[in-house]
Nucleic acid binder design. Structure first.
Lengths: 205, 205
DNA sequence: CGGTCCGTTGAACCGAATCAAAGGAAGTGG
DNA sequence: CCACTTCCTTTGATTCGGTTCAACGGACCG
């Protein structure tokens, strides 16, 4: 392979918006947030990335988002120039990348659906669903959802205020839909109701 | 080429969410809206597509969105099976598709930024900017923006109520930022201010 | 001429943002 | 190990923007 295996400690920056895009990263372990910070300090998070995702979308040679490790991260760093040569030679691999991009596109669309949903409640439910799906893929315990990000990251991803995120999670927990052990993990207490809410919220996406 | 040139009248459905995905369309002329309608009748619009865009994103063999022609549309219909063979053989063409997907991904991200922005005003400004950029590419008159979609489509894309869309557009027009000749086209009256607002709203995306 | 759909406007309500503040968790240095 | 700082999370009170409900004018069409 042309890549090198690299590690990033929790909180470190993997790549920065506006920098010359030299590599793309294929995530192996750990969760990454991707977004940007405006001049006034407001952070916008466009995506969370999980193992097997690609990180490092570029536009006209520059990274579009800043990517930060929310946990210790391992990834394959793939330099673009050799990668392009490889893709030109191996069309099966290229098709594989094409599929990955389609997947990212779908994820981004789900994010849009989340953002477009009216109530804070719905947004949080859809957000939890996102993590839920991911946790199952990664082979976690059935009903326990790990939240590797802070509340403010959830806020910036869902377009809500931090206070609203906190309040909504607490409300769901008060209604016995969820149970919150520590701040960074929730357990789904009423799976059927939860799934029903998800389906009702997402147009069935 | 493997495609056939096809036309769709205004208002017609190009493809339907959930249908077996047999073709992808390469738009040549006309604007398309892509989205889905929930059981309760609420429509969610995930994207507007313009000439040179790809239409027909699929997931596990099924179309993800319903695509509707907002104007008379011309497109190349590309059947998937031959297309895959062609891509496997021609890796330059495949790279071209990869780039298109990256572009779509960026667009979808911009949509997310729009939806995440706080005020109705900002959303409308970013929406107009989207059309503005497109109109320049298509080589339209500098400051005139054509709105091929109805108010309700704008509402469903921006996540606002129709009334709010109307009110906000009127407000911008009252402030002499815009001028509205007929309902389906606006003229940017204060370009510098408009561009400044766009930059302030989008984190510079 | 009546019907329907679309765009616009007005008034009232409501949910989330904002402002303010307190309780925890984590890390630092003595 | 503890005192201290700092950041994160949570809760409460208030404000405000956008939704909702209602109604009207206009365009298009049968």
């Amino acid at each position: 392979m042309i890549g090198t295996f690299v590690h990033f400690p929790r909180g470190s920056t993997i790549l920065r918006r506006g920098d010359h895009a030299s590599c793309v990263y294929n995530l192996v372990a750990g969760v990454v947030k991707a977004g940007s910070v405006s001049a006034e300090g407001r952070e916008t998070i466009t995506a969370f990335h999980f193992p097997d995702d690609l990180v490092g979308l570029a536009e006209s040679g520059l990274y579009v988002n800043t990517a930060t490790a929310l946990e210790p991260v391992s990834a394959y760093r793939l330099p673009l120039a050799p990668l392009e040569r490889l893709l030109a030679a191996d069309s099966t691999l290229e098709l594989h990348f094409l599929c990955k991009l389609c997947h990212e596109l779908r994820e981004q669309q789900r994010h849009a659906i989340l953002l477009a949903s009216d109530s804070a409640r719905t947004k949080i439910i859809l957000f939890l669903h996102l993590l839920d799906v991911q946790n199952r893929l990664t082979g976690g315990d059935g009903d326990i959802i790990r939240l590797p990000m802070r509340r403010i990251d959830i806020a910036n991803y869902t377009g809500l205020a931090v206070e609203t995120v906190s309040r909504t999670l607490r409300a769901l927990s008060r209604e016995h839909l969820l149970e919150m052990d520590d701040t960074h993990s929730v357990r789904i207490r009423a799976r059927p109701e939860f799934d029903a809410l998800v389906r009702a919220s997402s147009d069935g996406a």
